[in-house]
Design a protein around this nucleic acid. Structure first.
Lengths: 256, 256
DNA sequence: CATTATTGTATCAATTCGATACAATAGCCC
DNA sequence: GGGCTATTGTATCGAATTGATACAATAATG
Protein backbone atom coordinates (compact mmCIF):
# COMPACT_ATOMS: atom_id res chain seq x y z
CA UNK A 1 0.00 0.00 0.00
CA UNK A 2 1.49 3.31 -1.03
CA UNK A 3 1.84 5.74 1.78
CA UNK A 4 2.03 9.40 0.90
CA UNK A 5 5.36 10.82 0.02
CA UNK A 6 6.10 12.90 3.06
CA UNK A 7 5.21 16.45 2.28
CA UNK A 8 6.07 19.48 4.34
CA UNK A 9 3.34 21.54 5.95
CA UNK A 10 4.68 24.48 4.02
CA UNK A 11 4.22 22.80 0.69
CA UNK A 12 0.84 21.49 1.76
CA UNK A 13 -0.27 24.92 2.76
CA UNK A 14 0.89 26.39 -0.53
CA UNK A 15 -0.93 23.64 -2.38
CA UNK A 16 -4.16 24.31 -0.58
CA UNK A 17 -3.99 28.06 -1.07
CA UNK A 18 -3.44 27.38 -4.73
CA UNK A 19 -6.35 24.97 -4.80
CA UNK A 20 -8.64 27.53 -3.24
CA UNK A 21 -7.82 29.90 -6.07
CA UNK A 22 -8.16 27.46 -8.92
CA UNK A 23 -11.03 25.31 -7.73
CA UNK A 24 -13.92 27.65 -8.58
CA UNK A 25 -12.87 27.75 -12.22
CA UNK A 26 -12.20 24.05 -12.45
CA UNK A 27 -15.07 22.41 -10.58
CA UNK A 28 -18.82 22.55 -10.26
CA UNK A 29 -19.88 24.53 -7.21
CA UNK A 30 -21.81 22.91 -4.40
CA UNK A 31 -21.42 19.29 -5.38
CA UNK A 32 -19.03 16.47 -4.62
CA UNK A 33 -18.79 12.82 -5.46
CA UNK A 34 -18.10 10.30 -2.71
CA UNK A 35 -17.54 6.61 -3.24
CA UNK A 36 -17.90 3.67 -0.90
CA UNK A 37 -15.25 1.28 -2.17
CA UNK A 38 -16.04 -2.27 -1.12
CA UNK A 39 -13.45 -4.98 -0.96
CA UNK A 40 -13.47 -8.53 0.35
CA UNK A 41 -10.56 -9.91 2.30
CA UNK A 42 -10.24 -13.00 4.48
CA UNK A 43 -13.96 -13.48 4.72
CA UNK A 44 -14.68 -9.91 5.73
CA UNK A 45 -16.38 -7.13 3.80
CA UNK A 46 -14.17 -4.06 3.83
CA UNK A 47 -14.47 -0.37 3.00
CA UNK A 48 -11.56 1.80 1.89
CA UNK A 49 -11.24 4.98 3.89
CA UNK A 50 -8.82 7.91 4.11
CA UNK A 51 -7.42 9.28 7.33
CA UNK A 52 -8.14 12.99 7.42
CA UNK A 53 -4.88 14.79 8.18
CA UNK A 54 -3.33 13.46 11.34
CA UNK A 55 -6.67 13.26 13.11
CA UNK A 56 -8.41 10.08 14.18
CA UNK A 57 -11.21 10.78 11.69
CA UNK A 58 -11.62 9.10 8.35
CA UNK A 59 -13.55 10.05 5.24
CA UNK A 60 -14.81 8.37 2.11
CA UNK A 61 -12.66 8.83 -0.96
CA UNK A 62 -14.22 11.50 -3.11
CA UNK A 63 -13.69 14.80 -4.74
CA UNK A 64 -15.04 17.50 -6.97
CA UNK A 65 -16.70 17.37 -10.34
CA UNK A 66 -14.87 18.90 -13.27
CA UNK A 67 -16.87 21.53 -15.11
CA UNK A 68 -16.95 19.43 -18.26
CA UNK A 69 -17.22 16.08 -16.57
CA UNK A 70 -20.32 13.97 -15.99
CA UNK A 71 -20.99 12.65 -12.52
CA UNK A 72 -20.12 9.14 -13.64
CA UNK A 73 -16.88 10.31 -15.21
CA UNK A 74 -15.92 12.20 -12.08
CA UNK A 75 -16.61 9.17 -9.92
CA UNK A 76 -14.57 6.93 -12.21
CA UNK A 77 -11.67 9.37 -12.42
CA UNK A 78 -11.51 9.77 -8.64
CA UNK A 79 -11.72 6.03 -8.20
CA UNK A 80 -8.87 5.43 -10.58
CA UNK A 81 -6.75 8.06 -8.90
CA UNK A 82 -7.30 6.24 -5.63
CA UNK A 83 -6.99 2.61 -6.66
CA UNK A 84 -5.06 2.64 -9.97
CA UNK A 85 -7.60 0.19 -11.37
CA UNK A 86 -9.45 0.19 -14.68
CA UNK A 87 -12.88 -1.27 -15.36
CA UNK A 88 -14.22 -0.94 -11.88
CA UNK A 89 -17.82 -1.77 -11.11
CA UNK A 90 -19.36 1.53 -10.08
CA UNK A 91 -22.93 2.32 -9.22
CA UNK A 92 -24.60 5.51 -8.13
CA UNK A 93 -26.92 4.86 -5.22
CA UNK A 94 -27.84 8.04 -3.38
CA UNK A 95 -27.42 11.77 -3.18
CA UNK A 96 -26.98 13.28 0.23
CA UNK A 97 -28.06 16.85 0.70
CA UNK A 98 -29.22 18.01 4.07
CA UNK A 99 -28.45 21.69 4.50
CA UNK A 100 -26.13 21.16 7.42
CA UNK A 101 -24.40 17.94 6.46
CA UNK A 102 -20.95 19.49 6.67
CA UNK A 103 -21.61 22.23 9.17
CA UNK A 104 -20.80 20.48 12.40
CA UNK A 105 -17.90 18.60 10.97
CA UNK A 106 -14.47 19.11 12.53
CA UNK A 107 -12.93 18.91 9.09
CA UNK A 108 -11.91 22.53 8.74
CA UNK A 109 -10.61 22.75 12.27
CA UNK A 110 -8.42 19.71 11.69
CA UNK A 111 -7.11 21.18 8.47
CA UNK A 112 -6.34 24.53 10.07
CA UNK A 113 -4.52 22.83 12.87
CA UNK A 114 -2.31 21.20 10.27
CA UNK A 115 -1.52 24.08 8.04
CA UNK A 116 -2.67 27.28 9.71
CA UNK A 117 -5.60 29.59 9.05
CA UNK A 118 -7.71 29.17 5.94
CA UNK A 119 -9.74 32.11 4.63
CA UNK A 120 -13.41 32.20 5.51
CA UNK A 121 -16.05 31.90 2.82
CA UNK A 122 -13.59 30.02 0.71
CA UNK A 123 -14.34 27.00 -1.47
CA UNK A 124 -14.42 24.74 1.57
CA UNK A 125 -17.14 26.77 3.24
CA UNK A 126 -19.73 26.13 0.58
CA UNK A 127 -22.64 23.90 1.22
CA UNK A 128 -22.03 20.70 -0.77
CA UNK A 129 -24.38 17.99 -1.82
CA UNK A 130 -22.72 14.63 -2.30
CA UNK A 131 -23.55 12.28 -5.12
CA UNK A 132 -22.66 8.86 -3.73
CA UNK A 133 -21.44 5.80 -5.58
CA UNK A 134 -20.38 2.41 -4.47
CA UNK A 135 -17.57 0.50 -6.14
CA UNK A 136 -16.66 -3.17 -6.03
CA UNK A 137 -13.01 -4.06 -6.39
CA UNK A 138 -10.90 -7.17 -6.26
CA UNK A 139 -8.81 -6.24 -3.29
CA UNK A 140 -5.89 -8.34 -4.46
CA UNK A 141 -5.47 -5.97 -7.37
CA UNK A 142 -5.90 -2.69 -5.54
CA UNK A 143 -2.92 -0.57 -4.73
CA UNK A 144 -4.46 2.35 -2.90
CA UNK A 145 -2.70 5.67 -3.09
CA UNK A 146 -3.22 8.68 -0.94
CA UNK A 147 -2.30 12.31 -1.42
CA UNK A 148 -2.37 15.80 -0.01
CA UNK A 149 -3.76 15.95 3.50
CA UNK A 150 -4.88 12.35 3.74
CA UNK A 151 -2.21 10.62 5.76
CA UNK A 152 -3.41 7.03 5.43
CA UNK A 153 -5.51 4.81 3.16
CA UNK A 154 -6.92 1.85 4.97
CA UNK A 155 -9.39 -0.98 4.61
CA UNK A 156 -11.89 -1.23 7.44
CA UNK A 157 -14.19 -4.08 8.32
CA UNK A 158 -17.74 -2.91 7.58
CA UNK A 159 -18.58 -3.76 11.17
CA UNK A 160 -15.62 -1.99 12.69
CA UNK A 161 -15.65 1.44 11.12
CA UNK A 162 -13.64 4.28 12.63
CA UNK A 163 -14.99 7.72 13.42
CA UNK A 164 -16.11 9.33 10.19
CA UNK A 165 -16.49 12.94 9.18
CA UNK A 166 -19.62 14.55 7.74
CA UNK A 167 -22.47 12.09 7.14
CA UNK A 168 -20.20 9.40 5.75
CA UNK A 169 -21.28 6.85 8.35
CA UNK A 170 -24.93 6.69 7.26
CA UNK A 171 -23.85 6.85 3.62
CA UNK A 172 -21.85 3.65 4.10
CA UNK A 173 -24.89 1.98 5.65
CA UNK A 174 -27.02 2.99 2.69
CA UNK A 175 -24.36 1.65 0.34
CA UNK A 176 -24.44 -1.69 2.11
CA UNK A 177 -28.21 -1.87 1.85
CA UNK A 178 -28.00 -1.20 -1.84
CA UNK A 179 -25.24 -3.75 -2.30
CA UNK A 180 -27.39 -6.31 -0.53
CA UNK A 181 -30.24 -5.60 -2.91
CA UNK A 182 -27.99 -5.76 -5.98
CA UNK A 183 -26.09 -8.89 -4.97
CA UNK A 184 -28.70 -11.44 -5.99
CA UNK A 185 -30.44 -9.22 -8.47
CA UNK A 186 -27.50 -8.26 -10.64
CA UNK A 187 -24.89 -10.81 -9.56
CA UNK A 188 -22.44 -8.03 -8.85
CA UNK A 189 -20.65 -9.99 -6.16
CA UNK A 190 -18.13 -11.49 -8.53
CA UNK A 191 -16.55 -8.08 -8.91
CA UNK A 192 -15.33 -8.51 -5.36
CA UNK A 193 -13.69 -11.89 -6.01
CA UNK A 194 -10.44 -12.68 -7.67
CA UNK A 195 -10.54 -14.37 -11.05
CA UNK A 196 -10.96 -17.87 -9.62
CA UNK A 197 -12.40 -18.90 -6.31
CA UNK A 198 -13.82 -21.83 -4.42
CA UNK A 199 -17.47 -22.20 -3.56
CA UNK A 200 -16.60 -21.68 0.06
CA UNK A 201 -14.99 -18.33 -0.65
CA UNK A 202 -18.03 -17.24 -2.60
CA UNK A 203 -20.30 -18.27 0.23
CA UNK A 204 -18.21 -16.30 2.70
CA UNK A 205 -18.70 -13.25 0.51
CA UNK A 206 -22.46 -13.65 0.44
CA UNK A 207 -22.51 -14.17 4.18
CA UNK A 208 -20.42 -11.06 4.72
CA UNK A 209 -22.73 -8.95 2.58
CA UNK A 210 -25.98 -10.31 3.96
CA UNK A 211 -24.51 -10.47 7.45
CA UNK A 212 -26.01 -13.87 8.11
CA UNK A 213 -25.05 -17.48 7.72
CA UNK A 214 -26.22 -19.52 4.77
CA UNK A 215 -26.72 -23.26 4.43
CA UNK A 216 -23.77 -24.57 2.48
CA UNK A 217 -25.47 -27.23 0.40
CA UNK A 218 -28.35 -25.03 -0.66
CA UNK A 219 -26.04 -22.16 -1.43
CA UNK A 220 -24.01 -24.41 -3.69
CA UNK A 221 -27.12 -25.63 -5.47
CA UNK A 222 -28.34 -22.09 -6.01
CA UNK A 223 -25.04 -20.79 -7.36
CA UNK A 224 -24.51 -23.70 -9.73
CA UNK A 225 -28.11 -23.34 -10.84
CA UNK A 226 -27.50 -19.78 -12.00
CA UNK A 227 -25.47 -21.10 -14.88
CA UNK A 228 -22.83 -18.40 -14.61
CA UNK A 229 -20.04 -20.47 -13.09
CA UNK A 230 -17.45 -22.40 -15.00
CA UNK A 231 -15.88 -25.24 -13.09
CA UNK A 232 -12.13 -25.45 -13.35
CA UNK A 233 -9.61 -27.97 -12.06
CA UNK A 234 -9.57 -28.94 -8.44
CA UNK A 235 -7.48 -27.01 -5.99
CA UNK A 236 -5.20 -29.19 -3.86
CA UNK A 237 -4.52 -26.85 -1.00
CA UNK A 238 -2.78 -29.14 1.44
CA UNK A 239 -5.71 -29.33 3.81
CA UNK A 240 -6.67 -32.71 5.16
CA UNK A 241 -9.93 -33.10 3.34
CA UNK A 242 -11.46 -33.29 -0.10
CA UNK A 243 -10.02 -30.67 -2.44
CA UNK A 244 -12.55 -28.09 -3.66
CA UNK A 245 -13.07 -27.14 -7.28
CA UNK A 246 -12.13 -23.72 -8.48
CA UNK A 247 -14.74 -21.68 -10.32
CA UNK A 248 -14.68 -18.78 -12.69
CA UNK A 249 -17.51 -16.35 -13.29
CA UNK A 250 -18.57 -16.48 -16.93
CA UNK A 251 -19.91 -13.10 -17.90
CA UNK A 252 -23.45 -14.19 -18.80
CA UNK A 253 -24.15 -10.53 -18.13
CA UNK A 254 -26.87 -9.21 -20.41
CA UNK A 255 -26.19 -5.67 -19.30
CA UNK A 256 -29.30 -4.86 -17.31
CA UNK B 1 -57.50 21.40 -12.74
CA UNK B 2 -56.35 24.96 -12.13
CA UNK B 3 -55.11 26.68 -15.19
CA UNK B 4 -52.76 29.60 -14.74
CA UNK B 5 -54.24 32.97 -14.15
CA UNK B 6 -53.51 34.65 -17.43
CA UNK B 7 -50.43 36.74 -17.06
CA UNK B 8 -49.12 39.31 -19.47
CA UNK B 9 -45.79 38.81 -21.19
CA UNK B 10 -44.72 42.10 -19.67
CA UNK B 11 -45.37 40.91 -16.16
CA UNK B 12 -43.79 37.57 -16.94
CA UNK B 13 -40.68 39.23 -18.26
CA UNK B 14 -40.43 41.43 -15.20
CA UNK B 15 -40.85 38.38 -13.00
CA UNK B 16 -38.07 36.52 -14.73
CA UNK B 17 -35.67 39.44 -14.67
CA UNK B 18 -36.36 39.72 -10.99
CA UNK B 19 -35.82 35.99 -10.53
CA UNK B 20 -32.46 36.18 -12.29
CA UNK B 21 -31.35 38.78 -9.76
CA UNK B 22 -32.62 37.08 -6.65
CA UNK B 23 -31.99 33.43 -7.46
CA UNK B 24 -28.25 33.31 -6.77
CA UNK B 25 -28.80 34.48 -3.22
CA UNK B 26 -31.78 32.22 -2.62
CA UNK B 27 -30.84 28.91 -4.17
CA UNK B 28 -27.98 26.46 -4.36
CA UNK B 29 -26.00 26.86 -7.55
CA UNK B 30 -25.78 24.08 -10.09
CA UNK B 31 -28.45 21.79 -8.72
CA UNK B 32 -32.15 21.26 -9.27
CA UNK B 33 -34.75 18.83 -8.04
CA UNK B 34 -37.07 17.14 -10.53
CA UNK B 35 -39.92 14.87 -9.63
CA UNK B 36 -41.73 12.22 -11.60
CA UNK B 37 -45.24 12.37 -10.19
CA UNK B 38 -47.09 9.13 -10.83
CA UNK B 39 -50.84 8.86 -10.77
CA UNK B 40 -53.26 6.10 -11.68
CA UNK B 41 -56.44 6.83 -13.58
CA UNK B 42 -58.84 4.53 -15.42
CA UNK B 43 -56.42 1.67 -15.47
CA UNK B 44 -53.53 3.72 -16.83
CA UNK B 45 -50.33 4.81 -15.17
CA UNK B 46 -49.89 8.55 -15.61
CA UNK B 47 -47.17 11.13 -15.18
CA UNK B 48 -47.81 14.78 -14.42
CA UNK B 49 -46.01 17.15 -16.79
CA UNK B 50 -45.85 20.87 -17.42
CA UNK B 51 -46.10 22.48 -20.80
CA UNK B 52 -43.10 24.71 -21.29
CA UNK B 53 -44.33 28.13 -22.39
CA UNK B 54 -46.50 27.86 -25.42
CA UNK B 55 -44.24 25.27 -27.02
CA UNK B 56 -45.14 21.67 -27.66
CA UNK B 57 -42.48 20.57 -25.16
CA UNK B 58 -43.17 19.42 -21.66
CA UNK B 59 -40.96 19.15 -18.58
CA UNK B 60 -41.01 17.41 -15.24
CA UNK B 61 -42.14 19.52 -12.33
CA UNK B 62 -39.12 20.65 -10.43
CA UNK B 63 -37.22 23.62 -9.16
CA UNK B 64 -34.31 24.93 -7.22
CA UNK B 65 -33.02 24.07 -3.79
CA UNK B 66 -33.22 26.74 -1.12
CA UNK B 67 -29.90 27.54 0.50
CA UNK B 68 -31.12 26.31 3.86
CA UNK B 69 -33.23 23.46 2.56
CA UNK B 70 -32.38 19.79 2.34
CA UNK B 71 -32.93 17.99 -0.95
CA UNK B 72 -35.87 16.12 0.53
CA UNK B 73 -37.40 19.33 1.82
CA UNK B 74 -37.00 21.02 -1.53
CA UNK B 75 -38.61 18.10 -3.32
CA UNK B 76 -41.52 18.06 -0.89
CA UNK B 77 -42.02 21.82 -1.07
CA UNK B 78 -42.04 21.81 -4.85
CA UNK B 79 -44.42 18.88 -4.87
CA UNK B 80 -46.83 20.62 -2.55
CA UNK B 81 -46.71 23.78 -4.61
CA UNK B 82 -47.68 21.72 -7.63
CA UNK B 83 -50.29 19.37 -6.20
CA UNK B 84 -51.53 21.03 -2.99
CA UNK B 85 -51.23 17.69 -1.25
CA UNK B 86 -49.72 16.81 2.10
CA UNK B 87 -48.13 13.51 3.10
CA UNK B 88 -47.06 12.47 -0.35
CA UNK B 89 -44.98 9.37 -0.89
CA UNK B 90 -41.69 10.65 -2.21
CA UNK B 91 -38.55 8.74 -3.01
CA UNK B 92 -35.21 9.86 -4.37
CA UNK B 93 -34.05 7.50 -7.09
CA UNK B 94 -31.33 9.02 -9.23
CA UNK B 95 -29.13 12.02 -9.85
CA UNK B 96 -28.59 13.04 -13.42
CA UNK B 97 -25.41 14.88 -14.22
CA UNK B 98 -23.91 14.60 -17.66
CA UNK B 99 -22.04 17.75 -18.52
CA UNK B 100 -24.26 18.62 -21.45
CA UNK B 101 -27.65 17.50 -20.22
CA UNK B 102 -29.19 20.92 -20.75
CA UNK B 103 -26.98 22.24 -23.52
CA UNK B 104 -28.93 21.12 -26.55
CA UNK B 105 -32.25 21.86 -25.02
CA UNK B 106 -34.50 24.39 -26.77
CA UNK B 107 -35.64 25.64 -23.38
CA UNK B 108 -33.97 29.01 -23.47
CA UNK B 109 -34.92 29.68 -27.06
CA UNK B 110 -38.56 28.99 -26.23
CA UNK B 111 -38.40 31.27 -23.26
CA UNK B 112 -36.79 34.08 -25.24
CA UNK B 113 -39.40 33.76 -27.91
CA UNK B 114 -42.01 34.32 -25.25
CA UNK B 115 -40.56 37.22 -23.38
CA UNK B 116 -37.64 38.58 -25.35
CA UNK B 117 -33.89 38.38 -24.81
CA UNK B 118 -32.49 36.99 -21.60
CA UNK B 119 -28.94 37.93 -20.54
CA UNK B 120 -26.20 35.45 -21.28
CA UNK B 121 -24.34 33.76 -18.48
CA UNK B 122 -27.31 34.25 -16.27
CA UNK B 123 -28.69 31.79 -13.74
CA UNK B 124 -30.28 29.73 -16.52
CA UNK B 125 -26.98 29.20 -18.30
CA UNK B 126 -25.38 27.31 -15.48
CA UNK B 127 -24.75 23.64 -15.73
CA UNK B 128 -27.24 21.92 -13.43
CA UNK B 129 -27.28 18.46 -12.00
CA UNK B 130 -30.73 17.17 -11.23
CA UNK B 131 -31.59 15.19 -8.13
CA UNK B 132 -34.59 13.13 -9.17
CA UNK B 133 -37.47 11.91 -7.05
CA UNK B 134 -40.59 10.00 -7.84
CA UNK B 135 -43.87 10.68 -6.08
CA UNK B 136 -47.01 8.58 -5.82
CA UNK B 137 -50.29 10.40 -5.50
CA UNK B 138 -53.95 9.51 -5.37
CA UNK B 139 -55.03 11.30 -8.50
CA UNK B 140 -58.54 11.82 -7.21
CA UNK B 141 -57.12 14.16 -4.60
CA UNK B 142 -54.71 16.08 -6.78
CA UNK B 143 -55.53 19.56 -7.93
CA UNK B 144 -52.51 20.48 -10.01
CA UNK B 145 -51.58 24.12 -10.28
CA UNK B 146 -49.25 25.76 -12.69
CA UNK B 147 -47.50 29.10 -12.67
CA UNK B 148 -45.17 31.46 -14.46
CA UNK B 149 -44.18 30.25 -17.90
CA UNK B 150 -45.78 26.83 -17.71
CA UNK B 151 -49.01 27.11 -19.61
CA UNK B 152 -50.50 23.73 -18.85
CA UNK B 153 -50.36 20.96 -16.26
CA UNK B 154 -51.37 17.64 -17.69
CA UNK B 155 -51.41 13.93 -16.91
CA UNK B 156 -49.85 11.76 -19.59
CA UNK B 157 -50.10 8.06 -20.06
CA UNK B 158 -46.66 6.61 -19.33
CA UNK B 159 -46.76 5.03 -22.77
CA UNK B 160 -47.83 8.17 -24.59
CA UNK B 161 -45.45 10.81 -23.40
CA UNK B 162 -45.09 14.08 -25.28
CA UNK B 163 -41.81 15.60 -26.38
CA UNK B 164 -39.77 16.37 -23.31
CA UNK B 165 -37.01 18.88 -22.69
CA UNK B 166 -33.56 18.10 -21.32
CA UNK B 167 -33.07 14.47 -20.35
CA UNK B 168 -36.48 14.17 -18.77
CA UNK B 169 -37.51 11.30 -21.01
CA UNK B 170 -34.86 8.83 -19.76
CA UNK B 171 -35.39 10.07 -16.23
CA UNK B 172 -39.04 9.02 -16.41
CA UNK B 173 -37.98 5.60 -17.65
CA UNK B 174 -35.60 5.23 -14.75
CA UNK B 175 -38.36 6.27 -12.37
CA UNK B 176 -40.61 3.58 -13.77
CA UNK B 177 -37.93 0.95 -13.34
CA UNK B 178 -37.48 1.98 -9.75
CA UNK B 179 -41.20 2.02 -9.13
CA UNK B 180 -41.41 -1.51 -10.54
CA UNK B 181 -38.71 -2.63 -8.14
CA UNK B 182 -40.34 -0.92 -5.16
CA UNK B 183 -43.89 -2.05 -5.90
CA UNK B 184 -43.61 -5.58 -4.51
CA UNK B 185 -40.72 -4.84 -2.23
CA UNK B 186 -42.15 -1.95 -0.28
CA UNK B 187 -45.84 -2.18 -1.17
CA UNK B 188 -45.83 1.44 -2.27
CA UNK B 189 -48.59 0.91 -4.80
CA UNK B 190 -51.35 1.74 -2.38
CA UNK B 191 -50.23 5.35 -2.43
CA UNK B 192 -51.59 5.47 -5.95
CA UNK B 193 -55.03 4.15 -5.00
CA UNK B 194 -57.90 5.93 -3.37
CA UNK B 195 -58.78 4.97 0.17
CA UNK B 196 -60.88 1.97 -0.84
CA UNK B 197 -60.65 -0.10 -3.98
CA UNK B 198 -61.64 -3.40 -5.49
CA UNK B 199 -59.24 -6.21 -6.17
CA UNK B 200 -59.71 -5.63 -9.87
CA UNK B 201 -58.63 -2.00 -9.57
CA UNK B 202 -55.56 -3.04 -7.64
CA UNK B 203 -54.69 -5.61 -10.26
CA UNK B 204 -55.04 -3.01 -13.00
CA UNK B 205 -52.53 -0.87 -11.15
CA UNK B 206 -50.02 -3.69 -10.90
CA UNK B 207 -50.50 -4.49 -14.56
CA UNK B 208 -49.98 -0.86 -15.50
CA UNK B 209 -46.77 -0.63 -13.51
CA UNK B 210 -45.32 -3.96 -14.63
CA UNK B 211 -46.68 -3.45 -18.13
CA UNK B 212 -47.88 -6.99 -18.38
CA UNK B 213 -51.01 -8.97 -17.64
CA UNK B 214 -51.35 -10.94 -14.44
CA UNK B 215 -53.46 -13.99 -13.69
CA UNK B 216 -56.44 -12.76 -11.73
CA UNK B 217 -56.83 -15.68 -9.31
CA UNK B 218 -53.17 -15.86 -8.41
CA UNK B 219 -52.94 -12.11 -8.00
CA UNK B 220 -55.84 -12.20 -5.58
CA UNK B 221 -54.26 -15.00 -3.60
CA UNK B 222 -50.97 -13.16 -3.39
CA UNK B 223 -52.47 -9.85 -2.30
CA UNK B 224 -54.71 -11.41 0.34
CA UNK B 225 -51.75 -13.43 1.54
CA UNK B 226 -49.77 -10.29 2.29
CA UNK B 227 -52.01 -9.58 5.23
CA UNK B 228 -52.19 -5.87 4.59
CA UNK B 229 -55.72 -5.67 3.20
CA UNK B 230 -58.84 -5.15 5.22
CA UNK B 231 -62.00 -6.40 3.57
CA UNK B 232 -64.92 -4.00 3.72
CA UNK B 233 -68.54 -4.29 2.61
CA UNK B 234 -69.39 -5.35 -0.89
CA UNK B 235 -69.72 -2.80 -3.59
CA UNK B 236 -72.95 -3.09 -5.58
CA UNK B 237 -71.94 -1.23 -8.68
CA UNK B 238 -74.89 -1.92 -10.97
CA UNK B 239 -72.94 -4.29 -13.19
CA UNK B 240 -74.57 -7.54 -14.18
CA UNK B 241 -72.38 -9.85 -12.18
CA UNK B 242 -71.27 -10.66 -8.67
CA UNK B 243 -70.45 -7.54 -6.68
CA UNK B 244 -66.81 -7.23 -5.63
CA UNK B 245 -65.63 -6.50 -2.12
CA UNK B 246 -63.97 -3.24 -1.32
CA UNK B 247 -60.60 -3.31 0.39
CA UNK B 248 -58.58 -0.89 2.42
CA UNK B 249 -54.82 -0.93 2.85
CA UNK B 250 -53.95 -1.36 6.52
CA UNK B 251 -50.66 0.36 7.18
CA UNK B 252 -48.67 -2.68 8.28
CA UNK B 253 -45.78 -0.47 7.26
CA UNK B 254 -42.77 -1.03 9.46
CA UNK B 255 -41.03 1.97 7.95
CA UNK B 256 -38.27 0.36 5.95
C1' DC C 1 -5.31 -47.70 7.24
C1' DA C 2 -8.54 -45.75 10.24
C1' DT C 3 -9.60 -40.86 11.37
C1' DT C 4 -11.09 -36.22 10.38
C1' DA C 5 -12.72 -32.22 8.15
C1' DT C 6 -14.58 -30.69 4.12
C1' DT C 7 -16.74 -31.10 -0.32
C1' DG C 8 -20.14 -32.51 -3.91
C1' DT C 9 -24.51 -34.42 -4.66
C1' DA C 10 -28.92 -36.55 -3.74
C1' DT C 11 -33.28 -36.59 -1.63
C1' DC C 12 -37.41 -35.69 1.24
C1' DA C 13 -40.69 -32.44 2.76
C1' DA C 14 -42.56 -27.86 2.96
C1' DT C 15 -43.66 -23.96 0.49
C1' DT C 16 -44.56 -21.22 -3.38
C1' DC C 17 -46.42 -20.46 -7.84
C1' DG C 18 -48.78 -21.14 -12.48
C1' DA C 19 -52.84 -23.01 -14.32
C1' DT C 20 -57.40 -24.56 -14.14
C1' DA C 21 -61.93 -25.69 -12.26
C1' DC C 22 -65.98 -24.33 -10.16
C1' DA C 23 -69.53 -22.31 -7.30
C1' DA C 24 -71.71 -17.79 -6.11
C1' DT C 25 -73.99 -13.73 -7.53
C1' DA C 26 -75.83 -9.20 -9.60
C1' DG C 27 -78.01 -7.51 -13.14
C1' DC C 28 -80.06 -8.32 -17.80
C1' DC C 29 -83.40 -10.19 -21.00
C1' DC C 30 -87.32 -12.78 -22.13
C1' DG D 1 -89.76 -15.38 -12.23
C1' DG D 2 -86.10 -18.06 -14.54
C1' DG D 3 -82.45 -18.66 -17.54
C1' DC D 4 -78.21 -16.14 -19.27
C1' DT D 5 -73.84 -13.76 -18.83
C1' DA D 6 -69.93 -11.64 -16.97
C1' DT D 7 -67.36 -11.29 -13.01
C1' DT D 8 -65.83 -12.58 -8.46
C1' DG D 9 -64.08 -15.52 -4.66
C1' DT D 10 -62.07 -19.77 -3.53
C1' DA D 11 -60.23 -24.38 -4.04
C1' DT D 12 -57.14 -27.55 -6.08
C1' DC D 13 -53.72 -29.97 -8.99
C1' DG D 14 -49.10 -30.26 -10.43
C1' DA D 15 -44.66 -28.05 -11.24
C1' DA D 16 -40.96 -25.50 -9.51
C1' DT D 17 -38.41 -23.69 -5.68
C1' DT D 18 -36.48 -23.88 -1.18
C1' DG D 19 -35.10 -25.62 3.59
C1' DA D 20 -33.25 -29.45 5.90
C1' DT D 21 -30.84 -33.64 6.11
C1' DA D 22 -28.29 -37.70 4.59
C1' DC D 23 -24.41 -39.64 2.59
C1' DA D 24 -20.55 -40.85 -0.33
C1' DA D 25 -15.96 -39.06 -1.92
C1' DT D 26 -11.46 -37.51 -0.80
C1' DA D 27 -7.03 -35.29 0.85
C1' DA D 28 -4.15 -35.00 4.40
C1' DT D 29 -2.87 -36.84 9.19
C1' DG D 30 -0.95 -39.92 12.52
Amino acid sequence: MNQPESISDEALRAGIINFLETAPAAYMPGATVDTVIFGFHKGKLKVLLLRFGNSSYFVLPGGYIGKEESLDQAAMRLLQERTRLENIYLEQFYTSGSADRSKDSPAKAILQEMIGPIPNNSWFDQRFISVCYYALVDDTKVNPVTEAFFTEVKWFDINKLPKLLYDHQPIIQKALKRLQADLDEKLVGFNLMSETFTMNELQKLYEAVYQKELVRTNFQRKMLGLGVLERLEKQYNGKSHKAPYLYRFTQADDAV
